[in-house]
């Protein structure tokens, strides 16, 4: 139990850092889904199976799919980041 909690928390935090640091938005999106999945495991361990079910379906499933669909329609190009990422001081 304790080991599982520690493992889930570690996976969650590493995935959150990956979501922050990954330059590719699709990769960051996948990392955010992993955060939700680890969170669902954590909820189940915390005695909240209802919430775990909701988080697993909604957090790591539906919201990731929503993001991915919008990303596909918007046509995100990572190369844009180099172009405009550093001139926000203007």
């Amino acid at each position: 139990m304790t080991l599982l909690v520690l493992g889930a928390v570690a996976v969650m935090l590493i995935a959150a850092l990956a979501a922050l640091l990954l330059p590719d938005l699709l990769g960051a999106l996948a990392a955010a889904s992993v955060v939700s999945l680890a969170l669902a495991v954590l909820f189940a361990l915390l005695g909240a199976p209802d919430v775990a079910l909701a988080e697993a379906v909604v957090g790591s499933g539906l919201s990731g799919v929503m993001f991915a669909m919008v990303l596909r329609r918007v046509g995100y190009q990572p190369a844009d980041e180099e172009e405009t990422g550093h001139d926000d001081a203007a």
Binding site: D50, L53, A54, V57, G61, L62, V65
Partner: peptide
Amino acid sequence: SPGGGFQGGAVIAA
């Protein structure tokens, strides 16, 4: 059991 309208509804949407 664990579950209910919110979770099941999300599964049906999926």
